[in-house]
């Protein structure tokens, strides 16, 4: 039987964007699967926001092709996407409810349904008491939560969140993470653009790392991490560790010592040396490279 479900929610193929002589995005390709959280990461000025704006059809690419749910990007495609931009803003003079309904109707949602949904979301986020308050009277965190609701109110299939946790306190940050997970469970696809690597590790299934407008890492998070060799071990010992041949550097890390491996050394070789020296080892842990370390390493390599 023919399956109408799109294979990808978004397909970006060989997209480039130039401003004058500067190429800010250079031949980038990636796909977004249904029901995944996709991390778009990169240092400041790497081309993340430009890529997102092209994906939203706010700016046109010079070359390349963007398809949303099997259709070439067009004005109607915008209704299928929810977008939380990094530069946030709402109509300050409107009430929370008016603002939510107006922005949802701009996404082609009928006003009566938008009104119902707005009340549902406000109730879910404990914001119902603020329904008829003007946006300008809300705190920054509340405003950000309302902005997040405007992004998802019209039930988009693809949700793009550009630095969604910036400025949120831990409580609201957790609330938003829960909502993101719920959206994934509902089968929505989420693009999470951020430079906070811990958030990416916590939330994302796959990532694309951009540096200087070019794609430098693309794939499943665990696969990418496994491609990067172990370069340190954490040891908890009552003895003072020193003079280990396989170790390049020893870092005091509170109750642990972090041993940085020499090139061609392995954690097994270090463990053997420690045992040979009859050291009292209470804990021995292989240090998997964090995404942050991979990020720094990749950016440094591309300098």
């Amino acid at each position: 039987m023919f399956n109408n479900k799109p294979q990808y929610i978004a397909e970006v193929s060989h997209v480039s964007k130039e401003y004058g002589l500067t190429r800010v995005v250079n031949d980038i390709s990636f796909n977004i699967n249904p029901g995944e959280i996709f991390g778009l990461i990169g240092p400041n000025g790497s081309g993340k926001t430009t890529t997102i704006r092209m994906l939203m059809d706010i700016i046109k690419p010079n070359t390349g092709d963007i398809r949303i749910m099997n259709e070439k990007m067009n004005e109607q495609s915008k209704d299928k996407i929810g977008y939380l931009p990094e530069e946030r803003g709402l109509y300050r003079k409107l009430t929370v409810f008016q603002c939510l309904v107006y922005l949802a109707t701009l996404k082609n949602m009928p006003a009566n349904i938008a009104a119902e949904k707005a009340d549902d979301f406000l109730a879910q986020t404990d914001m119902l008491p603020h329904r008829n308050k003007r946006i300008e009277t809300l705190s920054k965190g509340m405003g950000q939560l309302i902005q997040f609701i405007t992004t998802i109110l019209h039930e988009p299939q693809l949700i793009i969140l550009d630095e969604p946790f910036t400025g949120l306190d831990p409580v609201n940050s957790n609330k938003m993470k829960e909502m993101i997970f719920t959206l994934r469970e509902q089968g929505k696809s989420i693009i999470l653009s951020t430079h906070m690597m811990n958030e990416v590790e916590e939330l994302c299934d796959r990532i694309l790392m951009i540096n200087k407008g070019q794609s430098v890492l693309y794939g499943k998070l665990q696969e990418i991490k496994s491609q990067y060799p172990v370069n340190s071990v954490f040891v908890k010992s009552s003895d003072t560790i020193s003079d280990i041949n396989s170790v390049k550097e020893i870092r005091e890390n509170g109750r642990y010592q972090e041993l940085i491996l020499k090139e061609n050394s392995t954690p097994q070789m270090i463990l053997q040396e420690l045992l040979d020296k009859k050291m009292d080892i209470k804990k021995y842990e292989i240090g998997v490279p964090s995404l942050r370390e991979i990020f720094i390493q990749v950016v440094e390599q591309n300098k």
Partner: peptide, 16 residues
């Protein structure tokens, strides 16, 4: 106002 409030990007993500 829409440019200063930064709402312009949200609007342009819905309409041309």
């Amino acid at each position: 106002e829409e440019k200063e409030n930064r709402i312009i990007e949200i609007l342009l993500s819905s309409i041309s």
